[in-house]
Amino acid sequence: MPSSNTFEITDVVAVSLALMRSNSVLGECVMRDAEAAFTGGRGDVVRVRTPKRRVAQNFNGTTVYTKVEEGHVQVKLTDEPTVAAAFTTKDMTLNIESFGEQVLKPQMDAVSAYVEKSAAAALLNAASKATGARAIKADAKHGEAGHVVKMLTAAAADFTRREIPAAARFLAIGPDVQNILLDVEQLQKVNEAGDSQALRNATMGELFGFRVVVSPYLDGAVAFHKTAYALAVRAPSEVQGGARSVSAADNQYALRVTMDFDPSVKSEVSIVDTLRGVATIDPARAIAFTVTPPAKA
């Protein structure tokens, strides 16, 4: 049986970061910025770099130069998702066969779910409740103006009209819209649905140029470009003292893992935490939808 001494903290952090990214859905669809060993804390404001659009000009004999500079958005770190687990030496030597499966994975599942849920609430759900959000009629028949297909094709046309790039367009949907999409006859035909198998499995697919993602934390739906929103993740700096603590970042995710011994309960502890902030970069690059209930007979 393994002992706690067999675990290298750096290996634990590497596995944690991989788990965090594999659990992320909405986080993969927005601009992300991560940093390890962040010396600030919750409430701090950080700068997230954003793409800056260039405009070409017709050369008329004089070259016009523009400054090479990056855009940025201010993101406040509002949340500090933390999961702590305590386990005795006996647990480690006799009961826990897989530290990753029995201790680390549940911790990372909880942290990832927190980040996903808070991102949905702070950004996408807020957008769907904003003034002017379009309504999808849950009882609409095929061909009616309020039908979900009509709304999504209109959103695609709006994006094109606004010169929003065709790449990195997303449609994030909640269970209510997922139920409607799976009932749309057009999506049941391979030649019209594109990646129909993915949609039937309620995972990912392509629909009218949007990559479809499903989130249980989302109400309604939001069509958006990757550059509409930003997610900032900062890993607190390593704990000083006797604890084994590592702060790391990879693939634009960051977290801190701390392993220590708590003599008050005679248990080893594993603590996974991070700092998270979200912000809207460009609201014009998102269109939200709400779902209206069926009309009463």
Rank of each mutant, 00 (worst) to 15 (best):
S3M: 02
T10N: 01
V12M: 01
V15Q: 13
L17P: 00
S24R: 09
V25C: 06
E28A: 14
D33M: 00
V48S: 13
R54M: 09
V55S: 09
T66C: 13
K76T: 03
V83L: 13
F87D: 10
E97D: 13
E97K: 14
G100D: 12
L104V: 10
P106R: 07
M108I: 08
A113G: 10
A119L: 02
L123Q: 01
L123R: 00
A133W: 10
A145V: 01
H147G: 07
A156E: 12
A157D: 06
D158A: 15
E163N: 04
A166K: 05
A167M: 09
R169V: 03
L171H: 05
I173V: 14
D183M: 09
Q186F: 11
Q188I: 12
S196W: 10
N201C: 02
L207W: 10
G209C: 08
V213I: 09
P216G: 10
D219Q: 13
G220Y: 15
G220T: 03
V222Y: 01
A223V: 12
K226I: 03
Y229D: 14
R234S: 01
A235K: 11
E238A: 13
Q252I: 00
A254N: 03
V257C: 08
F261Q: 02
P263S: 06
S270A: 07
I287A: 07
A288S: 08
V291E: 07
